[in-house]
Design a protein around this nucleic acid. Structure first.
Lengths: 136, 136
DNA sequence: CAGCAAATTTACGTGAACGTAAACACAGTT
DNA sequence: AACTGTGTTTACGTTCACGTAAATTTGCTG
């Protein structure tokens, strides 16, 4: 029973990865310019590994949540830090905690909106029922 | 014991409201240009009522969550729809439900990030403890 | 080696969400 | 009447996150 692992490529050209993740090549280059991605190079050409793909997914998720690229950068930096220094470790934890507070605030705000829309929905539904049943 | 209600102004000039809500007058005019606000006019001057202030808060909350103004427009429209028309009522409910799905997806994505950062935090904390207690 | 697809860099363009400056209007002092 | 404060419109400027076009370069393939 051969072929020990992976049906998937392991490496991607810029076009492959952009197709796979539904972004344009331009976007991938832009993220690289901004320092969010750092693909290997073979000559001049970019070679993306699984690691890069995962990072990209993280970036895209952040983007869907309305974060700017700098902000996403901050979060990715948390993962990248390879801190052997105690002060750096503490710093990563501190920055992580700060992000957590922001994020939890965001969740609360979102849930407030959700609650409001649900309430609105119920108001509208009552009106609707009133009109179509009792009304003229 | 008089003064039946409200210690607060009830109406605001553009500068008052912008100060109160921590935005610039330009922003208020911009939101008006985009159709998000519709303050009364006294001559040429804008007069904001409580209703406008509440709308502004909704807008700002949406903005903090990374929504575009058009998207915020959509959500505000839910509140504004004429509630005597059955078709409009149904439409509001339908669009509200669609928004709810989006929002709940967003909450889940946010919570995924929160979980990841928490896990990362625990990894970092372990390293830190290991170094400061057992390590060299 | 000619030709072609896939990639590259360079650089200007774009839409969103305002910032910022200029020029004008009006209302109430002084 | 002139000054000051608060507001107005008009319009160009800016940042972000890419889009888009142009001009190469690279790596095969016939």
């Amino acid at each position: 029973m051969p072929r020990s692992k992976s049906a998937r490529p392991r490496v991607y050209s810029i076009n492959e990865l952009s197709t796979l993740c539904d972004v344009t090549p331009r976007t991938l280059r832009h993220y690289e310019d901004m320092g969010l991605l750092n693909p290997e190079r073979q000559g001049a050409k970019r070679l993306y590994h699984e690691r890069d793909r995962v990072r990209l997914q993280l970036i895209l998720r952040g983007r869907r949540l309305g974060f700017g690229l700098k902000d996403i950068q901050d979060m990715l930096d948390l993962y990248d830090a390879d801190p052997t220094e105690v002060t750096q470790l503490k710093d990563v934890i501190r920055r992580g905690d700060a992000k957590l507070l922001e994020l939890q605030t965001q969740v609360e705000a979102l849930q407030a909106i959700i609650t409001e829309i649900k309430e609105l929905r119920s108001v509208m539904k009552n009106r609707l029922d009133h009109i179509t049943k009792g009304g003229e």
